[in-house]
């Protein structure tokens, strides 16, 4: 099939970017979305042009590298997919596809379709861990964890840190990302001891880094490729407020 691509091109962090149109013929329905861009890049290189820079690595939806805003939605059409899992079968001959990088003050664009998501690591540094040193762990089965808690913790822990929640949020809030970590660790006895402190520190860091606040629109949950629930944001709020009233 033949498609028209409208792709954001930007030389570097400081440059002004703009959209460039590409007409791409001979796209196969079997291709994944990223294979389609690889195909475009091959043609660009062979024509002496610069290929479109974008991030990707595992190509199976788990590393969180790929991050394209496609036709107005993070990771494009379809639910519970990362960009690398998106297939061209979702598009039709003659379609125009608009491709942008994640846009947020805290995720500055580095080049073309690559936004710098280092701010997520900075949020994690504020407390996204259990303060346990190697060697001091007790026997793994010494503390049973109720299966429902463990399962729910897992549902939060599957966050891949792709940033689609921020990209989707009209406030560029990182609440779902923070909630996934706080909720995961709050549900487990191992992480509970530091839970309130963790919630406050991570929220404070999130604010400091220029992410917006949550207005509960639910766009993050709808766009999260791992389907992380808003319920985790409620738990984050709870952990935060408990700590807020305590200190």
């Amino acid at each position: 099939m033949d498609i028209k691509l409208k792709i954001w091109r930007q030389k570097d962090r400081k440059s002004q970017g703009s959209f460039v149109d590409y007409y791409l013929t001979g796209v196969s329905r079997d291709m994944s979305f990223l294979e389609m861009i690889d195909y475009l890049n091959k043609k660009l290189i062979e024509n002496g042009d610069e290929p479109v820079a974008y991030e990707h690595d595992c190509r199976e939806g788990i590393c969180g590298s790929c991050a394209l805003y496609i036709n107005g939605r993070p990771h494009g059409p379809g639910d519970l997919v990362t960009t690398c899992e998106l297939r061209m079968i979702k598009f039709n001959d003659g379609d125009t596809i608009v491709i942008e990088p994640w846009r947020a003050k805290s995720f500055p664009v580095i080049k073309d379709l690559i936004a710098d998501r280092n701010a997520f690591d900075k949020i994690m540094e504020a407390g996204g861990f259990v303060s346990v040193n190697t060697g001091s762990a007790p026997e793994a089965n010494s503390i049973p964890v109720p299966k429902p808690d463990s399962d729910e913790a897992f549902d939060a822990a599957i966050c891949i840190g792709c940033g689609a929640c921020v990209a989707a949020c009209k406030n560029s809030s990182a609440m779902l990302f923070v909630a996934a970590k706080v909720s995961h660790l709050a549900l487990l006895p191992q992480g509970k001891a530091e839970s309130g402190k963790r919630a406050r520190a991570m929220i404070a860091r999130m604010d400091e880094l220029g992410f917006g606040s949550c207005t509960n629109t639910g766009a993050c949950e709808a766009e999260c490729p791992k389907g992380i629930s808003l319920a985790h944001i409620a738990r984050l709020n709870r952990e935060f407020l408990k700590e807020g009233f305590r200190s």
Binding site: G135, A137, N141, V145, S150, A153, Q190
Partner: peptide
């Protein structure tokens, strides 16, 4: 020891209904 360490760090390994790994 690795399993002990990971569980302490919050790795949510699968559990049985008893709550044990």
């Amino acid at each position: 020891q690795s399993i002990d360490q990971m569980v302490a760090a919050g790795v949510p390994f699968a559990r049985e209904y008893s709550g044990y790994l």
